[in-house]
Structure formats: structure tokens, C-alpha cells
Design a protein around this nucleic acid. Structure first.
Lengths: 303, 303
DNA sequence: GTCAATTACGTTCTCCGTAAGGATG
DNA sequence: CATCCTTACGGAGAACGTAATTGAC
């Protein structure tokens, strides 16, 4: 006789095992005494043996009942904890979210978002990676990151992507540079400038290259990995640089100025990238919503 | 929304997690696809979060679903094993029975019963204690033994007892003894005999004492604990002894004879003793039934 | 257009409660 | 005889199945 064993059976069994009294155990379970009796009876039928010895005066567990009681207590606790765990994740009181973001985002724009998230959901562990674009995608592909905020890579077909934002480029130069007083510049204006480059592995460089290559600019020969190095080199008058708006926080110093580059094709889209067809965890979904909300409130440069 | 979480929910969830296909998972669960869909929906309501991502083409676990799946697999296995364990005990394929029996029973009459039991139920562990009567009761009181086969002790009110059998006494003497050719003897016939006694702690002695004391028999001064010693002493012509029928197997030697003592008050009841109000385990119940069956087939001396 | 999940709705069946029955101290 | 578990029976609600609907590819 296959029983659809349920938490009600568990609760009833445990109540009776504890109370040793049908009527009172039935009350605790909010059942009539009759229904309760049937419940126990069906459980015993499924068990294939009596679990309680009872006459009209006494109720006690049989040896088999004792044995089952141990399992039943564990089961009840396990069911309870499984659902509690689920609800805690659903309520974002517990969980984990891992995201990857380009260094420029990770250093400047993202931290306040993460701080806000942690404030709202102190129980959730936040993991942040700040590698270059290729590795961002890799982390998402491996499932190490729930989603990434990064620039387009070579092969995005295996991901679900959404454009969050489009980052415009700025010329950064010393305050005493000939272009320093312009309100905006065009790519052509850069002719004659020595350019300090970021490494070719960076998304910044990859987006700059198609636009600047035709201009045959003089190269400074300097090609570094860190934006802070670019800032230092530029401040020392060794050249100028062209960087996305989101990285400008690295260049906010009295001796440097940043000037928008008015060039329609020169922009670096920032995408939300996640695994195709897989939904985000509740925790990650919350982070994503906060990212989008922050962007909506600060649409500078958004398209 | 409190769900009456049941094995059906578990099975459905696990089937869908494995199949990633509602229709096929529903078939495995012997449900219509519609009913199956509702089942999952209710489960998700109770969980407070989606467990599956699905559109008409793909079904996959959400991160929360993955987490729940681990717990669900454990739960399903635990429920299954708890019931399997119960059924194995009920079917006497598994379990344990402990019994205590007087040495005379444990040595002679009981072993074939235990052997038969083990043959029938090889999965059940049988534990046997063979102490004197007091300790037999003690073992039952402590729950170390499921039941005891023993003689009446001083305080039986705390136990449930049932008379199994009544053991009649026999005179044991050498073949060359004056009484050796009698077909039966009375207590009075023992006048002038030197009696070899068992220790006062034995139930044999305790039952003999009230009957033999008035006869003022000569004492041999020998008072030992083991029946085998009594046999040796008797065979050497140091005296005679009076022992219950169940112990006669110790005295089956060519130089000794055993003669029934025809004395209405001289008998030693053998009781089944168990804890009051507590039922026996299925395993122990089986042993008890075998004991009674064996007795019914061999009613020699039964009342 | 097809396949698959969801929704709608009528039906079935399980399970509950009221009430009578029975056993035990 | 009072207490308390069990059985009987009628009804409410949950769950199921058929079928129509929606949605994705």
C-alpha cells in the first residue's frame, strides 16, 4: 500500500510519540481525534507494522516505532531546514552573488552599488572579480560569476547580453597642452599628438584602434596596462591619452584635463553578460536590478 | 502558504530536475501533464521562489532549484530508507532480539529453538543471556532483554508474566542406590538420604526448600552452583539430588537414574516475563511464538 | 506551424468532521 | 461508568484529467 507520505504524517507521528495521547496530539495538529486516528492508521499500514501500542488508557511507541521516531525527527528537521533555506535565499537574507566587471567599472562606478547592496542584504556574500574583458567572459562561461559588466568581446553568441550603457571617450592631457582649452575635440585634432596606449589586451585599446589607426598618429612607444600609469605618464608630459569616461576618476588631478572626443563611432559599450538560458539567482537578480537602477538615476552618457 | 509537502512533491521535483521536460516527467510520475504542472507550481509557491526556469522549449533548474535539489535527493533517500528499514523489521529480515533464560533452559531446551529462529530469520541478531533468575528479571527491567524465560522471583508485580510450563522435580541418584528401581518417589521417601544442594541463590533451591525443609533431611554439606558439579558428586556416591526435569540432560549418564518425585506442591513454574505495558518488537514476538510452538509440540510436563 | 507549458473547468477521490461503537481500567 | 481509541458515514475541498489557451521557436 503506497502512502503519499507527507509532513502531516510526520507531524502527527511526532506529536503522538511525544504526547502519548491521541486526543491531545490531534489538538496540537488541529485535527479531529478521528481524523488523527486514521492518519496514524494509514501510516502504520504503509510501515507494515504497528508503530504505537495503545489501549484506551495508554499509548506508547513500539520498538519499531522508537526506531522510526529517530528517522522521523531527522526527516522533519531536514524538511524544515530545506524550506527555510529556500525562503532565506528567496528573501535575500542568505546567498551569494559573484560578478565580474572591467577594472574601470570595478574601481570607480561599481563600489557604491556593491556597498548599497551589502547594506540592503547583509546576509549575502558578494564576490567581485575585476579582470580584463576576456577573463570576464570566461568567468561567466565557467559559472564562477553570475554575470559580468564588460565590453563586447570577440564571441558573444554563447551569452545573453544586454547593453547597459555606452561609454564615450575623452582626451586626457596636461593643462598646458595646446588642446587643453577646447570644449571638445575630434579624432582628427589628435594629429601630431604622441599617444600613450593601454595594452592591446584591454577593451579600451581594442575599441580605440579602428578609429585611431587611420589617423597615423605618432606613437609615444609607451604601452602600459594600468590606468594609473597612464595618468602618471600623461602628467609628466610624455604624451596624451584617450580613455572612456568611466575611467576618468583615475585622471582627476589639478595638472590634467579631460575633453570629450566628439566622434560618433568612438564609444565603448558596456554590456551585461550572462549565461544563455540560465536565470540568475535571486541574489544575483537583486544585484543586477541595483546596477540598472543606479544607471537610470545617473544617465550621464547613457544611450 | 503552508504546503503539505509530500513524497509526491519530492518525486515530481526530482523527475523534472532530471528530465527537464514536463510531459515526460509527468509520465514517469503517472500524472497528466496538467496535474504535474500544478504540482510544481504549488511547490514553488511554498518555496517562495521559482525552482525551474522554463519556456515552452527548455526547462532548467534555477540556482535556488539546484540548491533545493541537493536537499531533495537526500530527503527522498532518507524517507525511502526509513520505510525500507521499517518494512525489513516488520518482515523480520532485520532486527535484534535479546532474551534471558535460566541456565537450565539456556543449555538444554532453548538452543534448538534459537537455531530454528536463526534459520528462519538469518538477518536478525539473537542475543542470549543465561543468568540466574534474579538477573533474568533485572535484564528485562533494564530493557537489555526483550523477555525472559525464568522462574518466579520475589517481585513480579512490575512485569507482565505468563506461565509457559511447569517443571516437575526428579530424584537423581546412582543406579546402585536403594531408591533407584522405584518408578516414582514421594518426598517422604527421601528421609535418610544425603542431599547435594544447589546454592540458595538458584531458583531450583528456592522452590525445593519449602517442601524439603520439614523433612529434616540429612545434609551432605555439599552446596554447589553448577548442575554439572551436582552430577559429578552424585555419580561419585556422595549423595542424591532433586532437580527439575528440564535439567535432566545434565544427568544422562549410565551410572545415574532419574525418578519423578510425586509431590503436588513440588514444581517450578517457568514464566515468560516481559516489561509491563510494552509490546515486543516484531523480532522478539517471532521468537516468543517459536518458544510457545515448541512447547505445544512437546507438552511433556506442561500443565 | 508545431511543440510544450499554462489555464480553465468539470469530475473524482481523498481526507476531514460528526456521531455511534467498543474496549479498558 | 467514564475515558479514549476506533469505525461508520456524509460532505467539503483538493487534486486529477480533458481540453482550450498561450507562448516560443
Amino acid at each position: 500500500m503506497p502512502l503519499n507520505f507527507s509532513t502531516r504524517h510526520l507531524d502527527a507521528f511526532l506529536a503522538l510519540a511525544e504526547m502519548r495521547h491521541f486526543t491531545r496530539a490531534a489538538e496540537r495538529c488541529h485535527l479531529s481525534q478521528s481524523a488523527f486516528s486514521q492518519l496514524i492508521r494509514r501510516l502504520e499500514d504503509a510501515a507494515g507494522t504497528r508503530l504505537f501500542d495503545r489501549d484506551t488508557r495508554n499509548v506508547a511507541l513500539t520498538p519499531e516505532g522508537e526506531r522510526f521516531a529517530e528517522a522521523a525527527r531527522r526527516l522533519a528537521a531536514d524538511v524544515e531546514s530545506a524550506f527555510a533555506d529556500l525562503r532565506e535565499h528567496a528573501a535575500r537574507r542568505k546567498g551569494r552573488v559573484a560578478l565580474a566587471a572591467l577594472p574601470s567599472l570595478a574601481a570607480g562606478w561599481l563600489p557604491p552599488v556593491i556597498a548599497e547592496y551589502r547594506r540592503r542584504h547583509p546576509g549575502i556574500a558578494v564576490e567581485l572579480f575585476d579582470p580584463l574583458a576576456d577573463r570576464c567572459l570566461e568567468l561567466v562561461r565557467l559559472g564562477r560569476a553570475d554575470f559580468a559588466l564588460t565590453a563586447p568581446g570577440p564571441d558573444l553568441t554563447e551569452f545573453d547580453t544586454r547593453r547597459l550603457y555606452s561609454d564615450r571617450f575623452h582626451l586626457v592631457c596636461r593643462r598646458d597642452h595646446p588642446l587643453a582649452r577646447r570644449r571638445s575635440v575630434r579624432a582628427a585634432d589628435l594629429a601630431g599628438c604622441e599617444l600613450i596606449h593601454l595594452a592591446r589586451t584591454t577593451s579600451v585599446r581594442q575599441h580605440l584602434e579602428p578609429v585611431l589607426r587611420p589617423l597615423q598618429l605618432k606613437s609615444s612607444g609607451l604601452e602600459v596596462e594600468q590606468l594609473a600609469t597612464v595618468a602618471g605618464l600623461t602628467a609628466s608630459g610624455l604624451g596624451v591619452s584617450v580613455v572612456p569616461e568611466l575611467t576618468l576618476f583615475q585622471f582627476r588631478r589639478p595638472d590634467l584635463v579631460a575633453i570629450p572626443v566628439a566622434e560618433p563611432d568612438l564609444e565603448r559599450p558596456i554590456l551585461i553578460v550572462q549565461r544563455k538560458g540560465r536565470s540568475l539567482s535571486v541574489a544575483a537578480q537583486g544585484m543586477l536590478e541595483l546596477v540598472e537602477a543606479r544607471l537610470a538615476r545617473r544617465p550621464r552618457g547613457a544611450r
